[in-house]
Computed example of a mutant assay.
Amino acid sequence: MGDETVTASAGTERVLTNMANAMVERGYNVIVATNDKTDAVPYFPFDARVHCLYLNVDTKKIPFSVKVKREINRIFPILDKPVEAYRASVSVRKLREQLKMDSIDCIIAYNHEAIQVADCFVHGIVPIIAMMHNAIRIIMGNCNRRVLAEKAKANVIQVLMPSYVAETRKYLPHTPVVWIPNVVEPVCLEKQAHPSAVKDRYRIITVGRIDGLQKQTHILVKAFASLAQQYSQWDVWIWGEVKKTDYYQRLCQFIEEQGLTGRVHLAGTTPAIQDELCQADIFAFPSAFEGFPLALTEAMATGLPSVGFRSADAVNELIVDGKNGILCEDDVSAFAQGLERLMKEPALRSAMGRQAVADMKPYYPEAVWNQWQMLIDEQIQQASRL
């Protein structure tokens, strides 16, 4: 159950699809309920056995009274988010029209906003597992007491990194918290990168939405601009969807002004990202924060050394500085230095890439889905004793 769209190509939507498909493969009857339009086409395909309910909530007009509450809440943030709360009530009504309570044994609230929907729908009768897809400080850092109280209604909170367990307990001290990471698919040898190979042209690649706040795409572009003349055989490939056209246009203008047209590629999206990763030599990841970055872990599983920021949540736990990649301080110059170190040392790229592959093995599907199955079954069994 989630309130986001399944039509997007982002990592969280991919997690939802992978989980639904894995659980139905293990014998569960899986229903995916989202607020999408009734004719939504998922970017990542679901197994035919997964039943999808598209509640068509986001198209419903927001009442004037709710808009007024939203404006008041911006000045005096004492309410739960009024618009989200209204949409949650609509979602609950539509769920009740389409689902019978006795057909549900457990609800996984796909994101933290969906907890409110799940709680109103089941009223404590069915256990709720709440997934936290981002860094905890981002999800909970600005929450008021009412919002935190809403999250505490989950029977258990699932987080993506070990350090997030203690961090979550600071906000929700009485709610059980478990660490289950996202799945990282193993990459066969034929599909792995060869970052030490001699080539006519070398590639720095990044994967993620074109964004200035979280993904900080401009940092990569500016860092490469400072290196481009000295390393004339290198190019940058940026794969990701465009959310803000003004930011994208500023990036394009900077690329043109720096004479990097044809060397910095804003390539858009592709369902065959693995083919692009295996052609690359370095993975650049200038995010400010992450929950569990699928793009980074997929690059590591492919055998690419990575460059990221020491302060970035999750990134600073997955990249082990000097072992499977390089962690930098938070500025363009430091990021450029990290890139350059790898650009000029093929043997280092190869050694870090091999270590990155080894470091991803604990996240392979069987281990992660076993953890999920155990958690789901435990929650169902506990509920049956009540």
Rank of each mutant, 00 (worst) to 15 (best):
G2S: 15
D3C: 13
D3P: 02
E4S: 11
V6S: 09
A8P: 00
A8D: 10
S9P: 02
T12E: 08
T12Q: 10
T12W: 15
E13T: 15
E13S: 14
T17N: 01
N18I: 11
A20F: 10
G27W: 14
K37C: 09
A40V: 15
F44Y: 15
F44K: 00
F44M: 00
D47G: 01
L53I: 13
N56S: 15
D58T: 10
K60N: 09
V68Y: 06
K69T: 01
R70Y: 15
N73H: 10
F76Q: 04
K81E: 14
E84R: 11
A85D: 12
A88R: 08
M101D: 05
S103V: 02
I104S: 02
I108C: 07
Y110Q: 09
N111M: 12
N111V: 08
N111Q: 13
N111S: 12
E113K: 13
Q116I: 05
V117S: 05
V117L: 09
A118T: 08
H123W: 03
I125A: 14
I125Y: 07
I129A: 11
A130K: 07
I136Y: 01
I138L: 10
M140Q: 04
C143V: 00
K151I: 14
A152K: 04
Q158D: 04
Q158T: 11
V159Y: 03
M161F: 10
M161P: 06
P162F: 10
Y164M: 07
Y164W: 13
T168A: 15
L172H: 04
P173F: 00
H174D: 15
H174S: 15
P176L: 04
I180E: 06
P181D: 06
N182P: 02
V183Q: 02
V184I: 13
P186C: 08
L189P: 03
S196M: 03
R203N: 12
R203K: 13
G208R: 04
D211I: 03
K215T: 01
I219F: 02
K222P: 00
V236I: 10
W237N: 08
I238P: 02
W239A: 03
Q249H: 06
E256A: 14
E256G: 01
L260P: 01
G262Y: 02
V264D: 01
H265L: 04
G268Q: 05
Q279Y: 00
A280I: 07
A288K: 14
P293S: 13
A295R: 06
A299W: 10
M300Q: 14
G303T: 08
S311N: 08
A314P: 02
A314Q: 01
N316G: 07
N316C: 15
L318W: 12
D321G: 09
L327G: 09
D331Y: 07
Q337N: 11
E340F: 00
R341H: 04
M343A: 06
K344M: 05
A347T: 13
R349A: 13
A351N: 08
A351G: 01
M352C: 13
V357H: 07
Y363W: 14
V368T: 11
N370A: 15
Q371Y: 08
Q382V: 12
S384H: 09
